[in-house]
Design a protein around this nucleic acid. Sequence first.
DNA 1: TCAAGAATAAACATAC
DNA 2: CGTATGTTTATTCTTG
Length: 369
Amino acid sequence: MEKHTQTLPPHSPLHSPRSDSEALSRSPSLPQPAAVQLTSFPSSRTTPASDLYSAPRASGGSHCLSPSTVSDQDDLTCLSWLHQRGNLLPLQPLPKITTLPQTLDPIPVQQLLSSPAKPPYSFSSLIFMAIEDSPEKRLPVKDIYQWIVDNFPYYREAPGGWRNSVRHNLSLSKSFQRIHRDKSQVRQTSTQNFLRESILISCLMKYSCFVSQSVGKGSLWRVCPEYRPALLEVLRKTHYCHHTNSSLLNKRVLLEAADNGQNTLGETMEISDLDFLSSNPPCSLTPDHEELVPMESVELTEVAGEDSEKDPLADSGYIELHYYQYQQYQYLVLPGDTEVDLESVEILQLDAEAQEAAGSLLDLAGGNH
DNA sequence: TCAAGAATAAACATAC
DNA sequence: CGTATGTTTATTCTTG
């Protein structure tokens, strides 16, 4: 059996500063692990929505992107290329936040304030971007609303009917799948045992490709993996149709890189492309059997093994895993001399998902770790 | 002009 | 009971 204990190379250098919560969740001085076998998972999750558009805001509306930040290694299967807001999503003025270059822009700020342009994106695209920009690649309707409002000023002022359209689109479009949250478990307990039970349950569930969802109002929505390329294509076409000016100088570079990435989708699967695994789970998907969220979604400092007591899972046949995040990568620390092969990497990813799901359940249940 | 897709509006059901 | 969410139907608009 082939061993894969190498550090997987990052394939997307376009990472931006992470969100506050993510920053808080990692140790800023955490050194590279030396004595552990280490597998790094390139995180396609690079920027939260707020960060996604922060660059033009902070730079006075400049949409220039340094060519050095563009890489043809970008993976279209993630939307990191979308995060290059300056090139790919400058469809709106951001009048409420951006300091507009007055000398170059003859349009009064007040006018922009009163009439932000309607984005050319379809609701499907907006929903798609919102979901893809979420850490777990799934969002409740409320958060989809919020993402749209945060990123497209038009919808701050627009009548509420667009929310209806969002819901309509979610329901009608095959591109999106509703994930039923497991509401039965939240009422059981919020104790430490709940966490451990949830981990165990989730670990068991992984073999049926089912992971219980965190509990809240309504359902979570995710992008149906098989429709993801099509959504990307629509998004790409929208960009091409609406951006031909020089401020988008690097867009073509990005999109070509994206095209290259997509061409390989489904044809080859590299160990470094775990996002592909998450989008194309080894089992078939049905409304009742959800895919596993990608490794990248795991909130890290230490998800598992948070207390030093003997872990009841130790006898369950599962490996106790530790995760941490350093810079833009997430690391899986394996115990001792654990050997990892391709298959194990995938399984470990599922474990990460299971534990992450358990953590979400506990958090939402108000449990204390 | 026509068809298909998207947007919009509205009614209704359900869950919290 | 009010609100949010989800589904469905119908109509209008846009685009190729």
